[in-house]
Design a protein around this nucleic acid. Structure first.
Lengths: 127, 127
DNA sequence: TGTTCATATGAATGATTGTTCATATGTTTA
DNA sequence: TAAACATATGAACAATCATTCATATGAACA
């Protein structure tokens, strides 16, 4: 996979703003710390998943209990289809996992990063 | 502000799936833990900001250094306008702050929640 | 004061996305 | 096996959004 050096100029001859030039060490430091393009893309895809009220509500329910699809639909007052579509998104990003029990499918949190990511987000907005 | 009790049924007479009924205590627990509608909306707006590659790249640069707009444009190989629009979004959600110095405007990270949110996200996708 | 440089911003556009609707898949039970 | 129930899914549509282009604002300097 390509790293950011494909996108970020590393040469000294770049013309930055006249008033100020990026020092070479800072440029090196930035390039060294920048994740590659694929990781950035994966990361933004992950955060996109958190960037929707319905999905957040589903996660908050799953913080408290393992529930099936129709329970979620009832609890959040939404159609079964809408919930199911969003559960698919959550599952694809490995935030939830599922388990079939007869006709029902039960969903639960996949791991605890979810809790800490959301906890940090809540801290940020409570300022 | 309204809490989720506006949206989530709290009554016992609700008809859930036949195969399985949500117990009253779980329902109470879920409702008690659910943030109100406004907080969920604010939270999803925050995560939406992280859900874009360009903004993530800007944040990764700012992890390493305080830089001006045209440096970001050069580093990320994008137009000044595109960067400026995204900086506005980042500033509105209080993830970055700015400081004018002559003609230039320098941007830096507003606080450290940014680092920990992104760190948790990276941990999650590295599995 | 007029010019130049750095940044901000409004409008337009193409792309992405959440929900709905209709329907398919999968499981249980009569 | 047929009917009923729970869930999944594809297509369509409306809404949101990132970028571009043109231009405005703001600061320094000649």
């Amino acid at each position: 996979m390509s790293d950011m050096s494909d996108e970020i100029n590393t040469q000294a001859e770049i013309e930055y703003c006249d008033t100020h030039e990026v020092h070479h060490d800072i440029l090196k430091k930035v390039n060294a710390a920048m994740p590659d393009e694929e990781e950035i893309s994966d990361l933004s895809d992950l955060f996109k998943v958190f960037g929707d009220s319905t999905r957040l509500k589903i996660l908050f329910v799953l913080f408290e209990a393992e529930v099936c699809v129709c329970d979620l639909a009832e609890l959040l007052n939404m159609t079964q289809s809408a919930i199911s579509h969003q559960l698919k998104v959550l599952k694809q990003s490995k935030l939830v996992s599922s388990r079939r029990e007869g006709k029902s499918v039960f969903y639960s949190l996949a791991d605890n990063h979810v809790r800490s990511i959301i906890a940090q987000g809540r801290e940020h907005i409570e300022e």
